[in-house]
Simulated scan of single mutants.
Amino acid sequence: MTRVQTLDIMLPHYGDTALMQAAVQSVLDQTDKDWRLTVVDDGREPGVPEWFASLGDERVRYLRNEKNLGITRNFRKCVELVESTHFTMLGSDDLLLPTYVETLRAAIEAVPDAAIYQPGVEVIDEHGDPSTSLGDEVKRRLYAPKHNGRRLVLSGEPLAANLLGGNWLYFPSICWRADAVKAINFREDLSVIQDLALIIELIQRGEKLVVEPAPVFRYRRHSGSLSSAEALTGARFGEAVRFFNEVADDLDRHGWPKAARSARRHLSMRLHALTLLPGALRHRQSDATRRLLRYALTRSE
């Protein structure tokens, strides 16, 4: 069995410095030391370059963009900087558990021809405490496949239809096969749903997704944003509508009618819009309320 090359951990950063430092420390604490961390800083927070210089670890590379690229372009830059066969796009407020690299390396060695590896995830709040949200419970109970502690290998139209009905993946926790992602990269015209767009295209190209049930990642949800700030982004659902309609047409041409129907219904996204309505109403955000209602109740094509 061929050993997996050094795992590239890419960290596109913009935001809270303390949370980013905790994310970096979680990489430094890995039981498997064969990793390389590249931080691409899209911000201007003071003291950050100096903090990285103080680490004195040759496995850590820090780059600061000359100008702000925005989320998707910074993602694309991270992909271009990947040097190994596999990589993870770690969120700068998320955490790796100590056995992340060890566990993902084992999954890759067991199923080397997959392109997407989804490990087990624990959800935490802004304080690092365990957190449960309606969205996460729906993901776990209704959409995520039942693995009973066993590694799963998924592919094809059933997987595409499943994810377009309800995306149960946690993007920052995923490990990717670099050549597959570099051939596509993230779409520059998407800023919210670019991860799902990439995954669906990979599946259409015949790539496999591995579910590795061991919980080795902590995904952070910020509870304060659920009632107010996120409701302000009602406009973001316009991007989702455009994507789902486009991908539905593409899947029809691809000969995957079940997946196309799932895209046109995009039921979980509609339900998500409904869950944001109370926050929009409570904060008297009339424009967001109208957008959310229109998105949630518009008839499928």
Rank of each mutant, 00 (worst) to 15 (best):
A240P: 12
R261D: 15
S225I: 06
L232N: 05
V241N: 09
R253Y: 01
L267A: 01
D249G: 15
A260Q: 02
L281V: 11
R253P: 06
R265A: 09
A235M: 10
L274N: 06
N245E: 14
A280R: 14
G234V: 10
G224R: 03
P278I: 13
F244L: 03
H254P: 02
H266Y: 07
G279N: 01
T233A: 10
A259S: 05
K258N: 08
L251Y: 07
E239N: 01
G279M: 01
A263G: 13
A259W: 03
T233Y: 00
L271C: 11
R242S: 14
S225Q: 05
E246Y: 07
F243Q: 03
L226Y: 14
S262M: 02
E239M: 00
R270F: 03
V241W: 14
A280P: 00
V247N: 10
A280G: 13
A273R: 08
D249C: 07
A240R: 04
D252Y: 07
L226N: 12
F244V: 06
D250Q: 06
A263T: 13
V247W: 09
A235S: 05
S268H: 03
H254D: 02
R282H: 12
G238H: 12
S228Y: 15
R253I: 00
N245Y: 02
R264W: 02
S228A: 05
A280I: 07
R265C: 02
T233R: 15
T275N: 14
D249W: 05
E246I: 09
H266L: 07
R253F: 00
R270T: 02
H266M: 08
L271R: 14
L271H: 14
E246D: 14
G238S: 05
M269K: 13
G279S: 04
R264P: 05
S262F: 02
E230M: 11
G279P: 09
L267C: 03
R282N: 14
S228M: 08
L276N: 01
R253G: 12
T275V: 03
F244I: 10
R261Q: 15
A280Y: 06
S228D: 00
A231G: 15
L277G: 11
A240S: 13
L281A: 09
G234Q: 01
L232R: 15
P278Q: 03
G234S: 10
A263S: 13
S268M: 12
A229W: 12
G279L: 00
A240Q: 05
G234D: 04
M269I: 03
D252F: 01
E246N: 05
G238Q: 11
H266S: 04
T275A: 14
L267K: 01
E239C: 08
W256A: 11
R242P: 04
A229E: 12
